[in-house]
Design a protein around this nucleic acid. Structure first.
Lengths: 156, 156
DNA sequence: GTTGATCACTTGACGCGTCAAGTGATCTAT
DNA sequence: ATAGATCACTTGACGCGTCAAGTGATCAAC
């Protein structure tokens, strides 16, 4: 790969990429610390609870839950162990297929999520949604989707 | 904090935010694994070498280097220790002020960076820069800058 | 119907980042 | 001059994510 001279970024490309790179570095930290401070949850834990809350019977197989919450199965397994200890999630062997394990959101877990969601939405509004015009939100969706397509189609 | 009903996201806001959130999750991983696979470097290590290479005398005080590479001083201290062991960076007490320590990029470190840069630029092009139109790059710069302003001006 | 492959998941070790505590140099006030 | 504050940085412990190896259930082939 990279035969010949690499095509370095032009100044315009640089400033766009640097802006995105900084957002990539700083936004996750800001979301993380809001959730940690106000709810004692990591962003990933929040996504897990959130995905479960939207599922039928508040139940999902580990594999599907991992995909929905953007994490590896192994990472999910560790996190569910922690969430189980805190009483917010329960593991249940799947009756239909012994290979599957269902993760179930408990009532306490649902309450926890309901208590944590408003603060999370608020910071998302403050830092992103309310900061941008409707046009920019539409552009952001297009740009984000394009990048995600590239990410998915890369064999890398 | 969140008095009254939280203002949930509208569908248009949701899809924009979800696209950004997914990028936030997946892009860093893709950059990380390209650098790890092709150069044996973490993204943060790459940024440290890169920042040093652009500085006068390839030298920066730890504090400034931490800011330029988007990391805490503590994180930087650990990373520089590792980079020192691999021979790419050297620590030097600052003659002018005994509180400062200068990090210096060695020749081996410079060579390492020169060897690693093309692959990194290439994946940035593939996943982001070349995937977007010039208009979209300009929009991305605007959107990114706006979010960064919010991040900086938040006392949170 | 038994062997082997595959699948869903778990586990433990390791590496990295964070946090809090600590070190030593340099200002600042008196 | 000296005591205290502040600054730049380091260190070690801890928690989390990753990776590789392992478990056990189910499928596929013959």
């Amino acid at each position: 790969m990279h035969l010949g001279e690499p095509r370095w970024l032009t100044p315009d490309e640089q400033r766009a990429w640097r802006a995105l790179a900084s957002v990539l570095f700083k936004l996750p930290g800001a979301l993380e610390s809001q959730l940690q401070r106000d709810a004692g949850l990591s962003h990933f834990e929040y996504l897990v609870l959130s995905a479960l809350s939207e599922a039928d019977d508040r139940t999902l197989r580990m594999k599907d839950l991992a995909a929905l919450s953007n994490g590896s199965l192994s990472r999910l397994s560790h996190v569910v162990t922690r969430l189980e200890k805190r009483g917010w999630v329960r593991r249940q062997p799947c009756p239909a297929d012994g290979r599957h394990i269902n993760a179930v959101l408990t009532d306490a877990g649902y309450d926890k999520l309901r208590a944590s969601a408003p603060g999370h939405v608020e910071i998302v509004r403050e830092l992103v949604v309310d900061a941008l015009t409707p046009d920019q939100l539409a552009q952001l969706f297009e740009i984000g989707s394009t990048i995600l397509n590239r990410l998915d189609s890369t064999t890398t």
